[in-house]
Computed example of a mutant assay.
Amino acid sequence: MQVRQSKWVGWWLAGAAAFIVILATPFLLESVTPDGHDWERLSSISQTYSAVSVLFSAAALLGVVVSIRHQAKQTSIANEEAHRAWHRELVLFLVQHPELMPATDAPRVPTTELQGRQMAICNLFLASWCSDYVLHRVNSQELRVTLHLHFRSALAREHWARASATWRQTEEVDSNPRSLGFVDLVDEVYAAAVAAGPGVPPEAFYTPPNA
């Protein structure tokens, strides 16, 4: 972030310097022009100077537009990250206090308290990966690898079987093509994992201590 800020500061300083040069040019020309100068020649110089000034003004305006657009994008990213952070903290709080889970949306199928917390963690992982994908922190290939490992878990598969429809409805309302692309990609990797064979059940993740 500091590198980007330094870059934009450099552009602004360069633009300001060019603007000052443009403003000072007529006075410099007048100060160095001797008496009896050629008015026709100076008129041509003035016309050329005017054209250059227009180009510099257009470039300066374009720089302002680009800068405003860049700042708006950075603000949007910051808001997205703040929202994701808030959601993450809320989910972790509910996992630590399962008695508050009924205050959220009710599960569509019978679920134990432990399963509810496990599903919440699965959803939290997907939300984090979705944020990274939407913000272009990861590409499709990287996401495929992550999802392939994720769906080795039978619990992760069960979660997506339950939650995929809700995810799709939410992202369709959001109308962000990249968010909807994330759901499509998750569906694709999930289907491939199911076709490849059964997932690893929770009880098989860890070997017994005395094994």
Rank of each mutant, 00 (worst) to 15 (best):
P26C: 07
P26K: 11
F27I: 07
F27R: 13
L28W: 14
L29I: 15
E30H: 12
E30K: 11
E30D: 14
S31M: 11
V32D: 05
V32K: 13
T33G: 11
T33C: 09
P34A: 14
D35S: 15
G36K: 09
G36M: 11
G36D: 03
H37T: 09
H37M: 04
D38E: 10
D38P: 00
W39L: 07
W39R: 09
E40N: 11
E40G: 02
E40V: 12
E40S: 08
L42C: 03
S44C: 06
I45P: 00
I45A: 06
I45Y: 00
S46M: 02
S46A: 14
S46Y: 00
Q47T: 05
T48A: 08
Y49F: 15
Y49Q: 09
A51K: 04
A51C: 04
A51V: 10
V52R: 07
S53M: 05
S53Y: 01
V54T: 13
L55P: 02
L55E: 05
F56Y: 12
F56S: 04
F56N: 05
S57E: 06
A58D: 10
A58T: 14
A59V: 10
A59I: 09
G63K: 02
G63F: 13
V64G: 05
V66C: 06
V66P: 03
V66N: 04
S67P: 02
S67Y: 01
I68R: 01
H70P: 02
H70T: 13
H70K: 10
Q71C: 07
Q71A: 03
Q71L: 13
A72F: 09
A72E: 08
A72V: 11
A72Q: 14
A72H: 08
K73M: 06
Q74V: 02
T75C: 04
T75I: 07
S76T: 07
S76M: 08
S76W: 01
S76G: 07
S76P: 02
I77M: 03
I77V: 12
A78L: 10
N79F: 04
N79T: 04
E81D: 12
E81G: 01
E81C: 06
E81W: 02
A82Q: 13
A82C: 03
A82V: 04
A82F: 04
A82M: 06
H83D: 12
R84M: 14
A85R: 12
W86D: 14
H87A: 15
L90I: 11
V91Y: 00
V91S: 01
V91N: 01
V91L: 05
F93V: 06
F93M: 14
L94A: 09
V95S: 00
Q96W: 04
